[in-house]
C-alpha cells in the first residue's frame, strides 16, 4: 500500500487511486489500533478481555473499510462480526465462567505439530498474497462503482445476485446446515423425555395421592438437617420426608425423639422448667 500523501482539493469527486490526507490519518490511527487489538487478544490472560481486544480489531477494520469508500462492507462488518458473532463468543465465555483457566492437558494428539504446519502455511499464503497485491495488481479505486448505477450498495447487490449468486447461495446453505446441525445436537436428548405441562403438574399436585406439600425434614426432631426424617404423631418415620439422595440418620439416634413424640419417654417433673430439657 503506497501512502502518497496528497493534499486533495475540496471536491466531492475523487481521483481513483490516490490517498487523501484524511484517509492517511485514519489509516495511521486505525492501523495501530487494529494491531494493538490483535496483540492484546493474543496476550490477554482473561478470555473475555481477549474477546474484547478482538472486538477492537474488528471495529478498526470496519472503520477502515468505511474510510476506503466501502461503507456497506464497513457497517456489515460491524453488524455481523462485531454485533452478532463476537457477541455469541462472549455469551459462551460468560457462561463458562470468569475463573475457569485453560486446561494444561492436551486432548488432541499432535496438535502442536498441526498448528505449526498450518501456521507456517497461513503465513506463506499471507506473504504471497500481499506480495502479489503490492506488485502485480493495479488498484482501480471504487469511484466508478460508487457513483454509477445507483451507488455502492446497489452495485454490491447486483453482483451478489447475478455473477456471484451460486457462491452466495452455497454459503448460506452451509451456514443453515451448521445452525440446524447445532440445534439437532443440542435438542436430541431433550426431545425424548417429554416435559409435563403446567396443567398436568397442577392436576398431579391436587388430585394425586397426597394433596399439599411434602413434610419437611426434621420437623419433630431435634435437628434441622435434611438427613433427619420427619416423625409422624405415632413416632414412625414419615416416608415422604426422606431425601432420595441423602442417606437418612440411623434409626437408633432417633429413639429419643420417637419416645418423646409418642409420649412414652421421660416426662418432665410437674414443677420442672420446661423447654430446657
Amino acid at each position: 500500500m503506497s501512502l502518497t500523501l496528497l493534499a486533495q482539493p475540496g471536491i466531492t469527486q475523487q481521483v481513483a487511486d490516490t490517498v487523501t490526507t484524511g484517509e492517511a490519518v485514519a489509516f495511521w490511527v486505525l492501523g495501530p489500533l487494529a494491531l494493538a487489538g490483535a496483540l492484546g487478544m493474543l496476550f490477554a490472560r482473561n478470555a473475555v478481555h481477549s474477546a474484547l481486544w478482538l472486538v477492537l480489531t474488528m471495529l478498526s477494520l470496519g472503520v477502515l473499510y468505511m474510510v476506503q469508500q466501502a461503507p456497506f462492507l464497513g457497517f456489515v462488518q460491524i453488524i455481523v462480526y462485531t454485533g452478532a458473532i463476537m457477541m455469541l463468543f462472549l455469551f459462551v465465555l460468560m457462561l463458562v465462567g470468569r475463573d475457569s483457566s485453560d486446561s494444561v492437558v492436551e486432548v488432541l494428539r499432535g496438535q502442536r505439530f498441526a498448528a505449526t504446519v498450518l501456521g507456517i502455511g497461513f503465513a506463506g499464503l499471507v506473504v504471497g498474497a500481499l506480495g502479489r497485491a503490492l506488485t502485480d495488481v493495479t488498484p482501480v479505486g471504487l469511484v466508478t462503482p460508487n457513483t454509477t448505477n445507483g451507488g455502492n450498495v446497489a452495485n454490491i447487490g447486483q453482483l451478489l445476485f447475478t455473477d456471484y449468486l451460486f457462491p452466495f447461495e452455497l454459503t448460506s446453505a452451509l451456514l443453515i446446515t451448521a445452525a440446524i446441525g447445532a440445534m439437532v445436537l443440542a435438542f436430541a436428548s431433550r426431545a425424548k423425555q417429554t416435559r409435563k405441562t403446567q396443567r398436568e403438574l397442577v392436576e398431579e399436585r391436587f388430585r394425586g395421592e397426597r394433596p399439599g406439600s411434602l413434610p419437611g425434614p426434621g420437623v419433630f426432631a431435634t435437628a434441622n438437617s435434611v438427613a433427619t426424617p420427619a416423625l409422624l404423631p405415632d413416632g414412625s418415620v414419615a416416608r415422604e420426608s426422606l431425601s432420595e439422595i441423602v442417606e437418612p440418620t440411623a434409626k437408633e439416634r432417633l429413639d429419643d425423639d420417637v419416645a418423646e413424640v409418642s409420649g412414652t419417654g421421660h416426662r418432665p417433673d410437674a414443677r420442672a422448667l420446661k423447654g430446657e430439657s
Binding site: 456497506f72 457497517f75 450498495v153
Partner: peptide
C-alpha cells in the same frame, strides 16, 4: 450516508 439505516442497526 448511502447506508444510513445500517448505521442505526450497527
Amino acid at each position: 450516508l448511502p447506508v444510513g439505516v445500517l448505521v442505526v442497526l450497527a
